[in-house]
Design a protein around this nucleic acid. Structure first.
Lengths: 341, 341
DNA sequence: CGGTTGCATGAAACCGGTTACACGAGATGC
DNA sequence: GCATCTCGTGTAACCGGTTTCATGCAACCG
């Protein structure tokens, strides 16, 4: 591989000048610049990023931290893939690379940092994006306090250089409830996400707020906690069906759970939407595929990645820590909430 | 951040010795070693990877190359996510990191290398794993010829340091056809993947081979080419239904197409499996979710990532280029091929 | 006892960039 | 005509590791 000194020799200039051609083109004489660029192209010169990082302490890489543990949500995030692609695209466009980092799940010691924190330091990563690992992670806050820009998805974070991106979960839940109300439903139950997760709590709040606004009673027996997974939705729906009074609509705080609920309803010999209307949340791929089509609150999937990339890059460039970014949600109406004739 | 010289001073040894403690522990005196390790832990010393890479030309990073273009399969690979997690896990376990690299799609110039190749060189990546981009990419071969270990998924590659991982596509197709035959079906059609893709071609071959083995005729009108996507499966199924003689079973070479086919069958007022039995390929998540449940040929999803990681790391460690790895497939029976009463 | 061997370590060059500082030449001001 | 300023460039130190080679020392050998 060609080095900067070789290229400099070939052009009859000093390495410093070559370096300037790439980093500070405007300070070098146009003629020299062109010649260096031309020669560089000829010999296929590519600057060595390790050397550059060593000298500047900027790696132009950000880490994506996720949880590979099968029992926890990291990579099971409903649009992990869309977030990834949005993030990757937005970062590339800004000249940054993406390094995949997993949490070790080892949050044991107070002193010992998680493996990903060590990776960030060893590689001089410029910033970090973290997909909600479900568990509160003190490492992230410490990392941010030490000056490394951090962006978390779907989970608020503390820390001077940390911010987060999330959907308007409460607003989306309100959309769902209002929609069911407009379709004539009055006994509206909900299957929530785990109470300790932010989206879970927020969607429940939105559900309750909208019930109040509509003047509908809040019934404790109409609120069942799920786990965001299919089996949890299935179980929760069964509990709702066993209750004394059956709801005529359910707002399910996650599409995967909603699919489980659909199945439970079918097993009980009931029909959607005739007996029970359903509205989900997320708009994952299956929502469109399962009969009769799942009405759901769609999140701005691509927006997640893009917003995270924007936030982390702006912090890297020295901007103030931006406020949390709340992405709007929209209602996608499908068969599961068709009005009755 | 603490440097190696600082740590050395603190221990009263030379930087060289500290370096040896981490890279060649056995050559340094046990007593010294322990002291260095202890002090390192105390001051939180972490070696700087950029400096290390600069000196050794080993980055302990491999690139994952995929295609972010929405029209092409890279990130739409049926188990992108599973491959990613398998790869990440297996690489981490071997001490390697994963850097996400997208193809620019700019395969224009014969001379100009794709952006990802430049990234590999600039960052001294130790190896590359590529998810089938659908298009033949000469850059990968050149990269491999220049000594960088490359592993491709679902697509054979040329190159002295290149190998690939794929499923036993033909074998899986044979499984599917045999299964339909056992269930009493005789007019077995197929919806294929694009002929120019390896899995598409192989699955078609398996289908044909098994028909011959079973003594069933090959009928050209029973072979319709799809595109691996839902809409393509839908369209292909409609063509099959319009034909003079209707098949009583279809082997669909991809689950997503199979879901489209299911829908087309429903729209035609026919029932699965009563009128037409269906077997898909891939075993994606929806296969279990769409009624009546899609019988399908399952690929070893986790195995993909693991096999790729193994192959690339073994080449990095100087082993001979391993032969292509063909992963076994298994049949998962669900409602779409239930035997008739 | 002199010479050989092996072990543990240190000195210093090197990897390939960046950048603070110095410097020379030509333009400008008075 | 001399001081000053600007522009373009070079020199050399530096980033933080690794590694070759040399060296000191103790043990071992005949």
């Amino acid at each position: 591989m060609a080095t900067i000194r070789e290229l400099a020799r070939l052009c009859g200039v000093s390495p410093a000048t070559v370096s300037r051609v790439f980093n500070n083109p405007e300070v070098v004489n146009a003629k020299t610049r062109e010649q260096v660029l031309r020669t560089a192209r000829q010999i296929g010169y590519l600057p060595n990023e390790s050397a550059r990082t060593l000298a500047t302490k900027k790696s132009f890489m950000v880490g994506l931290v996720w949880d590979t543990d099968h029992r926890r949500p990291g990579w099971r995030h409903p649009f992990f893939q869309e977030i990834l692609i949005g993030l990757k695209t937005a970062l590339s466009g800004r000249g940054y690379h993406l390094l995949m980092l997993a949490t070790s799940g080892d949050t044991s010691g107070e002193r010992t940092e998680d493996a990903y924190v060590r990776a960030v330091r060893r590689h001089n990563l410029d910033g970090v994006v973290m997909i909600d690992s479900g568990t509160w992670d003190p490492s992230l806050q410490r990392l941010s306090e030490s000056g490394v820009p951090c962006v978390s998805l779907d989970r608020p974070v503390e820390g001077s250089r940390a911010t987060y991106v999330t959907s308007d979960n409460a607003g989306g839940a309100r959309l769902a409830v209002r929609h069911l109300h407009e379709r004539g439903r009055r006994a509206i139950a909900t299957i929530t996400g785990p109470a300790h997760t932010r989206p879970g709590a927020e969607r429940l709040r939105g559900y309750q707020d909208e019930l109040s606004r509509l003047g509908l009673p809040r019934r404790p027996e109409f609120v069942v906690e799920g786990d965001f997974y299919l089996s949890g939705g299935h179980a929760a729906m069964r509990r709702l069906l066993e209750a004394d009074e059956r709801p005529d609509a359910v707002f399910v705080a996650g599409d995967e759970m909603a699919v489980g609920a659909l199945r439970a309803i079918g097993e009980a010999g009931l029909k959607v939407p005739e007996d029970i209307a359903l509205v989900g949340f997320d708009d994952i791929e299956v929502a469109a595929l399962v009969p009769p089509g799942l009405t759901t609150v769609a999140q701005d999937k691509a927006g997640f990645g893009t917003a995270a990339a924007e936030a982390v890059v702006s912090m890297i460039n020295g901007a103030d820590t931006p406020p949390p970014r709340i992405l709007p949600t929209t209602l996608v109406v499908r068969g599961s909430s068709t009005p009755l004739l």
